[in-house]
Deep mutational scan, measured.
Amino acid sequence: MTEYKLVVVGAGGVGKSALTIQLIQNHFVDEYDPTIEDSYRKQVVIDGETCLLDILDTAGQEEYSAMRDQYMRTGEGFLCVFAINNTKSFEDIHHYREQIKRVKDSEDVPMVLVGNKCDLPSRTVDTKQAQDLARSYGIPFIETSAKTRQGVDDAFYTLVREIRKHKEKMSKDGKKKKKKSKTKCVIM
């Protein structure tokens, strides 16, 4: 069974824990209790493949930012979460993405942009803004509501699919490099 290491990042209060708990335990946590770091595991079937999701729910508070490099190193894919009623959390996505790329030393890291709290009427981040940002990053965008469960499975499952595509691409690139290195030079 394939294991996928997913990391949920975003500013404090955007609903990272609520999304994760909704996926794992099928219930909505409405009281806000700032996370330092929590880890969850769940076995699911995605596109006919049974897999184990190892999900790291991270601290959004700035005082825990020193811990970010460590979990970013171990993560295979990242859910970059903002709240649709919090423009600052949307603007912060850029910083999370840049930090992930720096730590992973790669421009090509599996990510999904997630606009959470889409059940709320007080939207300050337009869907088109988020779609445009995701398009500019070359990553999928999904709106979710941890409260109603809308888009929750889709967000995590899409990230797994992005990781699969990335692994497939990397193995193809690896095979191309191996083929090239088999060419021999004969000096007579």
Rank of each mutant, 00 (worst) to 15 (best):
26 N>G: 08
102 R>A: 08
155 A>P: 08
18 A>N: 07
50 T>G: 08
41 R>C: 07
49 E>G: 05
152 V>C: 10
130 A>Y: 14
183 T>Y: 01
86 N>H: 07
74 T>E: 15
132 D>E: 15
38 D>L: 05
16 K>F: 00
105 D>K: 03
20 T>K: 12
98 E>T: 05
48 G>H: 06
106 S>V: 08
98 E>A: 05
186 V>F: 02
8 V>I: 09
167 K>H: 07
91 E>F: 03
131 Q>A: 13
107 E>H: 12
164 R>Q: 08
169 K>D: 11
179 K>G: 15
180 K>M: 12
25 Q>K: 12
2 T>S: 12
27 H>P: 05
89 S>Y: 01
130 A>I: 13
94 H>P: 02
28 F>T: 08
72 M>W: 06
152 V>S: 04
44 V>T: 10
9 V>L: 14
74 T>S: 12
184 K>R: 10
131 Q>F: 04
39 S>W: 05
98 E>I: 01
74 T>I: 10
26 N>W: 02
30 D>W: 06
95 H>E: 06
135 R>C: 05
97 R>T: 13
180 K>Q: 14
58 T>V: 12
120 L>Q: 12
35 T>V: 06
164 R>T: 03
58 T>M: 05
141 F>S: 04
147 K>N: 07
32 Y>V: 11
142 I>L: 11
14 V>T: 07
4 Y>H: 14
4 Y>E: 06
50 T>R: 07
127 T>M: 14
115 G>R: 01
163 I>H: 07
131 Q>V: 07
120 L>I: 10
159 L>E: 00
152 V>D: 04
159 L>D: 00
183 T>D: 15
11 A>L: 13
30 D>Q: 11
164 R>P: 01
149 R>Y: 08
99 Q>E: 13
116 N>C: 15
59 A>H: 12
156 F>S: 02
144 T>P: 01
22 Q>H: 07
131 Q>L: 10
6 L>C: 04
32 Y>I: 11
161 R>C: 04
111 M>F: 09
71 Y>V: 12
136 S>G: 09
127 T>A: 12
82 F>K: 00
83 A>L: 01
5 K>W: 00
49 E>C: 05
9 V>R: 00
160 V>H: 05
84 I>V: 14
170 M>S: 05
72 M>G: 10
57 D>I: 15
41 R>I: 06
87 T>Y: 07
4 Y>N: 09
31 E>Q: 06
150 Q>T: 14
58 T>G: 12
6 L>S: 00
40 Y>K: 11
103 V>S: 06
124 T>W: 07
33 D>S: 10
85 N>S: 15
159 L>K: 00
88 K>R: 06
113 L>Q: 00
152 V>A: 07
87 T>S: 12
161 R>E: 10
54 D>C: 04
134 A>D: 03
114 V>K: 00
4 Y>G: 05
137 Y>Q: 10
22 Q>P: 15
